[in-house]
Nucleic acid binder design. Sequence first.
DNA 1: TTTTTAATTGTTAGCGCTATCATCTGTTAG
DNA 2: CTAACAGATGATAGCGCTAACAATTAAAAA
Lengths: 350, 350
Amino acid sequence: MRQKRGGRAAGVTMEDVARVAGVSAMTVSRVLRQPTLVNADLKAKVEAAIRETGYIYNLVASSLASQRSGIIALILPTVASSIFTDSVKGVSDVARTHAVQMIMAETNYSPAEEEKVIEALLRRRPDGFVIVGVSHTRATRALLEKSGVPVVETWDSTPTPIDSLVGLSNFDAMKAMTEALVAQGFRRIAFVGTATRDRRAQMRAKGYEAGIAEAGLGAPLILNADDLTSMESGRIVAERVAALHPRPDALLCLNDVLAAGALLAFQRMGLAVPGDIAVAGFGGLDFSSHLNPSLSTVDIPRYEMGQRAAEMLIGRIAGTAAQGGTCEMGYRIVLRESTGGSRPAEAQAS
Amino acid sequence: MRQKRGGRAAGVTMEDVARVAGVSAMTVSRVLRQPTLVNADLKAKVEAAIRETGYIYNLVASSLASQRSGIIALILPTVASSIFTDSVKGVSDVARTHAVQMIMAETNYSPAEEEKVIEALLRRRPDGFVIVGVSHTRATRALLEKSGVPVVETWDSTPTPIDSLVGLSNFDAMKAMTEALVAQGFRRIAFVGTATRDRRAQMRAKGYEAGIAEAGLGAPLILNADDLTSMESGRIVAERVAALHPRPDALLCLNDVLAAGALLAFQRMGLAVPGDIAVAGFGGLDFSSHLNPSLSTVDIPRYEMGQRAAEMLIGRIAGTAAQGGTCEMGYRIVLRESTGGSRPAEAQAS
DNA sequence: TTTTTAATTGTTAGCGCTATCATCTGTTAG
DNA sequence: CTAACAGATGATAGCGCTAACAATTAAAAA
């Protein structure tokens, strides 16, 4: 430890290691970053010096000098929801294998907050962004394009991604589930989820509407919920649904969390699922298959989406992948007991 | 944009902004960091120049020059589990209000991985660490102590924290739940969760054992599960429990996820909960109160623990809090239908 | 032997900021 | 009228690393 610049304590630097090992700082740097370029004896000497001094490589200085931060930023609507945790893990796992660190920030489903958050993260000079969603403010888009940082958008689809895309058609997926419910014989299918929040929610609602329209089932019935990510919210909606006349014979939910909340609430108020009312969700979350009755859902490859997005991003950063790359992820309609399907049967789609 | 150093493109720098505004770079820096020191006219001019040039502050350079990264690191066992998401949010929310960024890494419940992860993060020179758990390798402890970075440990208790602690007594909490079950009249209480994973799991198992021993209920019965964070694992354990002779009259689980998996599995195999077997969990997760029957649990202030830990850490970083600070968080025994308690009644403890 | 080439290592000059001190203005007090 | 001082701005010298190039040595080719 030395004293420098007005008395602030500084840690061990590469220079210190170099002195101990009897080489130049550059050689130490090479041992750490391109060990094959260094003679084996010297390498051993340097490694010993590193151990002896307790040197900890300084990535801040490295980032500044090399213009590479080794950080990828992950922007998502919320960190506190089970909906995205698997995608986070997918990104995080890939990041780790490439010796890159992931930094996360949440937007609370607000494009304005997203703009702020991205601007804040840009100050860290991340090597790339994975962003959940394709709907951004004009300024956000301009900011990202000007910065020249690779971006992979995901969890939604668009023909005009900022850079690259790991897509998911929320519209198609929810429409397919609606059709599956129709095929199961349900005729008064209601939908929970607002059309006024984020684009993913909107597209799912539109998919439901399209499914209803094509089946010629009359006017769609869309119910809103204030909070779209809590079981409590599902419970509250279930009470409203139970009071409707005529009561819907199926309730399709924006996601599995709402669906589970509704399903359990129906049961508690004495309604049989699916006898009195069927319930279906979206997302394929883990707990869905464990509920009694097990919950029908649209299974989407959450972990794989995160993985794929991170891999694509790392390709873009390395320059091996071209801009404009797109990869559409599929979905699976999983009909279980909550819609009258049998437990083990899992229909396949897309 | 200028070309520098062999042709790499560089973005707009503070120097560029300064030139446009007709001031020195130092003044631009002051406008951004200590605006009160700068004359209002100049400030306006600089702000205009920033907008005009599209300048984005470079925190990498700032971190290097100021020896402050503005990053706090959060180390937790896993990012993919609902158990910690609320704590993550607590840390993240506090970090945001202090204009600090949070960087997260997971250890997979392994002290060896924790050591690697902490060493990797130390390279980014974070201003502080929040670490879930108090059990670390000797090397980890030495590393953190030598680095001099403030550390707040949480989600467990110890008289000898590395630096500061936001504590939770897993032993006391699980013992209290065991006693509550005994008070409810259960006599053959089994426990699920391994005593061989992390210290938090161990302490909970020990709390259960102590509760059983003090009640004079004979030998404790501890069942292991391979995976301690999935409902599927709870289901598998439930099958083993159902086959026991005599069958336990209550199953106490390491956490709510296991408990929910077990509860739903018991129901599916035709066992009444709590009639044939009671179930209780730990963690106070959101979904517990929604299950039918609602799940008894030990509610712990997950979000607040994250908040408190982050606040304490920021105090340590600012130098306003002393080393060795400790703050013990409480817990609440919540008895619900799954142990024969009535739904609204929520007993209070600690 | 001399020249060419490849393989190692070192030197230099930043990366884009900020801590520190110096300078310069305009006040206020003596 | 000068000294003392506070307030605002600028100049300088790094922070700890790496890109680019230079220098050195040893091996291969001529």
